[in-house]
């Protein structure tokens, strides 16, 4: 099973599927969970296998709220993870799932039709997107962009295109091209992050 976990404060960073050769950062197993965490505008990527992901609480949404995750480079010899919660809620949204930014529950959206904060949109994106088509002419913004965000907006559009090309390259098994695109993408991603902060 593949998990794509993105830290909810961040812009979604899709992790490519061709990284299947990657190893878990904690043990030698195959990594299946790719966790991008952005703290103070600095992006940190972690690759984990299923069992290490469970141990680290990465599949537990509440676990995201913890101020730190014990990364091996911080505490290389510490393998006691007792202070992390061991309840593992599913990543699939249930009604009691709450926005990590403001604590608004998905259940409340169903009741009131309104969200708790702008961060809720990242967090409940899949569920909201599902309903947008019936509500609006389209599902993608084509109107005005705030002046300070025009550059970032264009870069994001460019990223979308590159990601598509990369996926095509992967399915065409052109890994050399895919790797080049991946590097290009991460370069732009870094720039975008600087713009965001």
């Amino acid at each position: 099973m593949w998990h794509h976990v993105t830290f909810p404060f961040a812009n979604p960073v899709v992790v490519a599927k061709f990284v299947s050769a990657m190893q878990c950062d904690f043990c030698d197993s195959k990594a299946t969970v790719f966790f991008t965490q952005i703290i103070d505008g600095v992006s940190k990527k972690t690759n984990l296998c299923d069992s290490c992901a469970n141990e680290q609480g990465v599949t537990d949404l509440d676990g995201f709220l913890l101020p730190h995750i014990d990364f091996p480079e911080n505490e290389p010899d510490d393998d006691t993870q007792n202070d992390l919660p061991d309840t593992h809620t599913s990543l699939v949204m249930d009604d009691k799932t709450c926005c990590p930014d403001c604590g608004f529950a998905f259940d409340d959206l169903k009741k009131t039709g309104r969200l708790g904060c702008s961060g809720c949109y990242q967090f409940f994106l899949a569920e909201i997107k599902h309903n947008l088509a019936g509500m609006h002419k389209g599902t993608s913004h084509t109107g005005r962009v705030p002046m300070g965000m025009v550059e970032a907006f264009q870069q994001r559009r460019q990223l979308d295109t590159l990601r598509k090309e990369m996926e095509e390259a992967i399915s065409g098994e052109d890994y050399e091209k895919a790797a080049k695109l991946r590097d290009q993408i991460s370069q732009i991603e870094e720039k975008t992050l600087i713009l965001d902060t």
């Binding site: 039709g113 969200l115 702008s118 990242q122 947008l132 609006h136 599902t139 913004h141 002046m147 559009r157």
Partner: peptide, 28 residues
């Protein structure tokens, strides 16, 4: 709006546009 956006950090998403309390107002 253009004057205000220079002073205020508007909630904006490249896909969903201006983010609003109710999804029926998203976009513009």
């Amino acid at each position: 709006d253009m004057e205000l956006e220079q002073k205020l950090p508007y909630a904006f998403d490249h896909e969903l546009g201006y983010l609003t309390a109710c999804p029926t107002n998203l976009g513009t």
